[in-house]
Design a binder for these strands. Structure first.
Lengths: 191, 191
DNA sequence: ATAGAATCGGAGAGCTCTCTCCGTTTGCCG
DNA sequence: CGGCAAACGGAGAGAGCTCTCCGATTCTAT
């Protein structure tokens, strides 16, 4: 997923190793500390000079994207895979719970999903995310599993809120899942 | 509220005027920009040197508390006033919606309610808030209006999440209220 | 009006953060 | 093994933030 601009020239062996190490450490640091962690701090934890890290990733944002974009792309892929499931209601709620579950364990992922746009303007990932979500939603609404007045953007916003709530609840004791409550709220009231 | 340490000596007339102006500007700045706004920026907007603002409020936090604490105290007071309402379910949901409604219009209030503790450690406001909320909740649960498995802390966390979601939704178009969905999720499923 | 106290203004200390630059070190190939 | 391109390290520029200090200014009591 990196910015290999491949076919240019293969990285020297030590450089490739170091690049991997930076990604590994950045991944851990982002999961525990979120997007506010400083670039210097990541370099320090990885045991490199800050210049070395900048050699591999030209900006802080580039490094963070290298770590996190794949995770979000997988959410989109999951949604697409579930778009043909038999039970549309179950598929929708399973996806919602799965995204929450994964994101809650990763501070930076939460920050990114909660923030205004997943990426710097110009990317289409945010749109892909909402579109894939929208297909799950529409099918679930068609079978009467989800309130008909919700849009994909509404669900997107509820997901943000769910992350905020669930993360807090987990920090306390994790007994009750806030996600359950919010999913219940999205269910159609037909029955 | 204020740190008047009254009965010391009355402020000079110009100083009192300036103090009021700082509070006024800070209130507006916090509502629109949230807790991340800088102290210098508030001084600039108010048209004062930064030293003047520090004369009135010894730290950034002190200024922010002077602006925001009263708002949160009013939420607590509202909850206490509603604790004797006839319809316990209606009282609970009305309070929840009221807090959301007020906070959503004020970025800094959201930041404060969503952050870990309302105040620096040592204050009891956070506890008062949760306790007052808890009384509304218990009464609503007793009449079967709210899921029995929710605790006051759960509702506190759902409120945080609701603010995140609702603020986003409002920024889009404000048609559907995310608060409705989350309140529905909190309702008992008895019927 | 005037002295003296209260208040103001803003330069700047000290901190953190992102990112650059370049002298030093290291891996690679003939 | 020798030489050179590639990679490394970290000092430091530059920006932003909180907060302090003290000379300049303004109010007020007499």
């Amino acid at each position: 997923m990196g910015d290999d601009h491949s076919s240019a020239r293969p990285l020297r062996a030590d450089a490739r190793r170091n690049r991997e190490r930076v990604l590994q450490i950045a991944q851990e640091a982002l999961a525990s500390d979120g997007l506010t962690i400083s670039f210097d701090e990541i370099a320090r934890r990885a045991g490199f000079g800050v210049g070395t890290v900048y050699r591999h990733f030209p900006t802080k944002e580039a490094l963070f994207e290298a770590v996190l974009l794949g995770r979000i792309e997988r959410f989109v892929a999951d949604a697409r895979a579930l778009a043909t499931a038999e039970d549309a209601g179950k598929a929708f709620f399973a996806w919602f719970a799965r995204v929450t579950e994964q994101a809650v364990a990763n501070q930076a992922l939460c920050d990114m999903l909660e923030s205004g746009s997943v990426l710097r303007p110009g990317s289409t990932l945010e749109d892909d995310f909402t579109a894939a979500l929208g297909r799950l939603l529409t099918r679930a609404q068609r079978v009467g599993a989800v309130r008909a007045d919700l849009t994909a953007h509404d669900v997107r916003d509820l997901l943000r809120g769910c992350l905020t709530a669930e993360r807090r609840a987990r920090a306390r004791d994790g007994r009750l899942r806030m996600t359950d409550v919010i999913c219940d709220g999205m269910r159609a009231r037909t029955s």
